[in-house]
Design a protein around this nucleic acid. Sequence first.
DNA 1: CCAAAAGTGTTCTATGTACACCCATGC
DNA 2: GCATGGGTGTACATAGAACACTTTTGG
Lengths: 215, 215
Amino acid sequence: MTHFVRCNILTALFRIQGRSLQVLLRAAVGRSWQLPFANLEEGRSLEACALSALPDPGECALYLEQLYTYGDPDRSSQGQLISIVYFALLAADALLGEPPDRARFAWFAIEDLPPLIDDHADIVSYALRRLRYKLEYTAVGFELLPEMFTLSELQRTYEIVLGEQLDKRNFRRRILEAGIIEPTGQMRSGTGRPARLYRYRPDAIAEVKTRRLFP
Amino acid sequence: MTHFVRCNILTALFRIQGRSLQVLLRAAVGRSWQLPFANLEEGRSLEACALSALPDPGECALYLEQLYTYGDPDRSSQGQLISIVYFALLAADALLGEPPDRARFAWFAIEDLPPLIDDHADIVSYALRRLRYKLEYTAVGFELLPEMFTLSELQRTYEIVLGEQLDKRNFRRRILEAGIIEPTGQMRSGTGRPARLYRYRPDAIAEVKTRRLFP
DNA sequence: CCAAAAGTGTTCTATGTACACCCATGC
DNA sequence: GCATGGGTGTACATAGAACACTTTTGG
């Protein structure tokens, strides 16, 4: 009764590097690229398969959530294919290890993507919309930072992802009032006055009440 | 390289009836019930398959969106199965026609569900969370009403879904200011003073800006 | 002593919330 | 004329947005 279909998993992994937001891609045929993919393995969860699409992240925990399932009959050039797409975030200081299948992987700034196969450009753009949206009303931004970070780094992360300048005083007040980060007691020196280092409090309530359409 | 997996589509359809929110279920073996399901048919979109899980809705357009894809190895009693789940809303005055496979379908109030197979109870409860959440910040509530409706009916719909009393004056002010409905000019008489009938303006911007975590 | 980044409060505006009475109709 | 649901405005509290200067360090 239930029947069998062609199906794979795609994972869109993002990170911040310098002043840009990057996505990890895998070389495809010719000059085109694609989202990292994996097969569904018998007895493994979807999340586990989504991780196996990526080079080994080693110790670095990465944030992972399901994005969408694509299945239009004409979305793949090789016949009908269901793709369950995951969305992932990597800390800025994390390094990836061995890639699966010894394939070639590379990071691309999201404003400068190479040609992508099939509907992968649409998928990246949807993943990006989801990232921006989630960043606005949850605390997911910390997943893009090292374990310890300064308030300026955090603000820069938000500005890069949202593509928008934020007010320093308001930003600091809001995030400190929200109680989702705490000072570590350590400082970081660089050029200029040293900055306090903070860490994310994973026990904190990350969601913000939405402004409702109706009272 | 890409391989084949067992996969189906489930559709969780909701409607308002009287003072309760109902979900449509399909009889399963024994005394248990399940979400309406369909196979993925070659050459059809996921949405089309999701609709084919339901009795024929005839003229009534129904709201449909993808909910989530479930695929844990132990979620089905009959071996690993991917289920792409859709979430649907039906207008209160709509009638459903012939069910697929001549199967038995019935509406159940969401606070009084029968035993469900596998993880279908979890899926219903997630769909319900999504419905409440969406109702708060988008105009999806109109999908549960006939084409023309009074402001009191609209408010009652919101109250039933959200499980919460709303203030009449604030509700009316907000929804009229939002400009997402318009008076039809017609009135409905019943017991008490006749009420203006409104219709949804599909061109209206349905989303509300969320209250952001950061400024 | 100067460059560079960190840190810090207040005022004004907009939005949300709480709340009670008159109106039009059918019976 | 009364029961029933429809319709309306205001005052107060809270949240958001705009804004500029002082502090601490390294070179």
